[in-house]
Every structure is written in C-alpha cells, then in structure tokens.
C-alpha cells in the first residue's frame, strides 16, 4: 500500500518535536477528519535554520510531515514557498490515490507556518 520511502519516514520520522518560541507555527487539518499537522520554524534572515513537526494522523500524514521538514531545512523562504503537496508526495515515491487529498497537507502546514512568521514580523513592526 505504501512505498518503502513512506514506511521509512513513518517508522523513523525526521525532526519530530517542537521549537520553543518558534518564529513561525503552522497548523492544518482537524481532529474530525483524522489528520492534524503542526510545523514549527526557526528562521534567520531569509533562511529556515530549523524545522520540527507534530502530527496526528495516518501513515501518510506522518510521512509527508517528516519529508517536508527534510526538504525545507536550510532553504530560503521563497524556495520553501515553492514546495507543493504534490512535490512532497513525489519525493516519497508517491502515495495511494485515496491519500493524495486527505493526508497530503504537509506543504500547506509549512506555508501556514511561513505566513505566521510574516504576520509576526508585521506585528513587531507595529
């Protein structure tokens, strides 16, 4: 059902955890649909220095969260914004068709975290 890569990321997820006082936090999904992903970003200048995640969900939800953190670490914000849900799925060697929509939201969570970072910046400027 899942590729080896998905199972690898599910079994040994990268970057699980949270970043205290993160520069940006993004959350997507809801408990009703069975998937929640939360991504924490540590940003210096334009660079994503560190990233962590916490996810409640199925194998695909965990694996896509793990994969997106690996893809984005050390990247610039514009590069991070270019990462799509489809690109995450592709990096995992594909997902079963029924998972492409419901559990493939990791890039959305990343983008939400970047938006949160910008919102905080705006607020700080006052």
């Amino acid at each position: 059902m899942y590729t080896e890569k998905v199972m690898d990321h599910f079994t040994n997820p990268r970057n699980v955890g949270e970043i205290p006082d993160a520069d940006g936090v993004g959350e997507v999904g809801n408990p009703k649909c069975g998937d929640i992903m939360r991504i924490y970003l540590d940003i210096e200048g334009d660079i994503i220095k560190d990233v962590k995640f916490k996810t409640f969900g199925c194998g695909a939800a965990v694996a896509t969260s793990s994969m997106v953190t690996e893809m984005v670490k050390g990247k610039t914000i514009p590069e991070a914004l270019d990462i799509s849900n489809a690109a995450v799925a592709e990096a995992l060697g594909g997902l079963p068709p029924n998972k492409l929509h419901c559990s493939n939201l990791a890039a959305d969570a990343l983008h939400a975290a970047i938006k949160d970072y910008y919102d905080k910046q705006e607020k700080a400027k006052g």
């Binding site: 199972m7 998937d35 199925c58 965990v62």
Partner: peptide, 14 residues
C-alpha cells in the same frame, strides 16, 4: 485517544 488508527495498525504490523 490522541492517536490515529491507521498509524496504530501500521506500527502493530511492523
């Protein structure tokens, strides 16, 4: 509570 069924099944299967 606080975990999802498919993740449990995959982990048990392993």
């Amino acid at each position: 509570q606080f975990v999802e069924g498919e993740s449990l099944l995959l982990s048990l299967d392993m």
